[in-house]
Design a protein around this nucleic acid. Structure first.
Lengths: 204, 204
DNA sequence: GTCTGATCTGGACGTATAGTCCATACATGA
DNA sequence: TCATGTATGGACTATACGTCCAGATCAGAC
């Protein structure tokens, strides 16, 4: 019944994603597409982990991180699939191998990167990287790229960046402005609006 | 004479790289391909920085990092071009905008990433704590309290703090000065001494 | 289409902080 | 005692921060 969905997802994300369909009754694998581990239908599911997961988002778990024996890092999401009687008829797991993505990211950041005289190449890079990370996270949550953000989006992002004390770092403001595709003035304007209700509590 | 090379490089790396050809005699721009800043032939080069650069790799400098006013981060390489008489006839600069690469890298590492865990905001938040930590570590290693530190000790501590990019945070210098029980002037003096040998430190 | 109101923008501007410089003061040892 | 090296306060310049505002831009109302 669910097989076409699984096959479709496996095709879409392949070859770096494995799709597994479990039977919660017997705790065994119903089917597996694009397998990364030598499992097959009928093998035990080892699905006990689902119990430990946060049940706040009912029936959908993750993405959470898994570590394979060979060191590959996976992002996993699981979903409980229910039939017309609302009974759990299957559990769908999608395991995405993040290794190639991370390797590609490393290649990109290394491209033309300064090689000389960088005593600790981590810090200056660190906060600008953090900016990108915060913004990227928001984009993923809302599905709205930077170019199509509304004023509210920008306020939210700036709020997070401010909480992360990003603006305590010198030269951070222009970097944020550039990352948000907005002028420096706008950044300060939105920031002022953001901190206005909380009065003068923040010295900067 | 060098124009075809410049055009070729600009075409290869465009639109994210700017190629500038300078005349070291007059210190002016000879030509510019794919300009990112409103400069043109005849404008002053502002090339004094080259003198400060590390001469270990003769005639080729970088890549080092530049920061544009709008926040874009560039990787820059420079090369001194010489004629048959070995006289410097031109200086070639290639400035690569790293922003799109870094954004792409952020997108890649964010793809399907676990959302459950956020990077701890504690690290940067308490940079004054980090200062105390570095100093405390040094005191413990040498068994010498801050009051009894020699000039060499202070140099060593400031070196560590500088490597930890502590001075990229606003208002860090006075805090460090207070922690080391010295004046602000002394901190800047020692810092200058510390970064003097490496000359090309900050290509601002 | 025109007219709004809201928002963004680039530049100008004043202020705060980052760094530099220097005359003086204070050590330490010959 | 002097000489040498270092630290200091304060004055000074250079940058970066943050504010402000007139004009540009855009979306929606009419």
């Amino acid at each position: 019944m669910w097989a076409p969905v699984c096959r479709a997802v496996a095709l879409l994300l392949g070859p770096y994603a494995e799709v597994v369909l479990h039977d919660p009754e017997t705790d065994r694998v119903l089917g597996i597409w694009n397998p990364m581990t030598p499992r097959g239908p009928g093998d035990p599911s080892l699905l006990g982990e689902l119990d430990e997961l946060d049940p706040s988002a009912r029936d959908v778990y993750g993405p959470y991180e898994k570590l394979l024996a060979d060191g590959r890092r996976l992002s996993s999401v699981s979903a409980v699939l229910r039939d017309e009687q609302d009974r759990a008829s299957a559990v769908l797991c999608i395991n995405l191998d993040r290794t190639p993505l991370e390797q590609a990211a490393a290649v990109l950041s290394a491209f033309g990167a300064p090689t000389v005289q960088r005593p600790e190449p981590l810090f200056e890079q660190d906060w600008s990287e953090r900016i990108q990370h915060v913004i990227g996270g928001y984009v993923r949550e809302t599905g709205r790229p930077v170019e199509r953000m509304t004023r509210q989006d920008r306020l939210a992002v700036l709020g997070r960046l401010d909480e992360a004390r990003v603006f305590a770092v010198r030269r951070a403001a222009p970097v944020v402005a550039a990352a948000l595709r907005v002028s420096r003035s706008t950044v300060y304007g939105l920031l002022a609006e953001l901190r206005a209700p909380s009065a003068k509590d923040r010295p900067r």
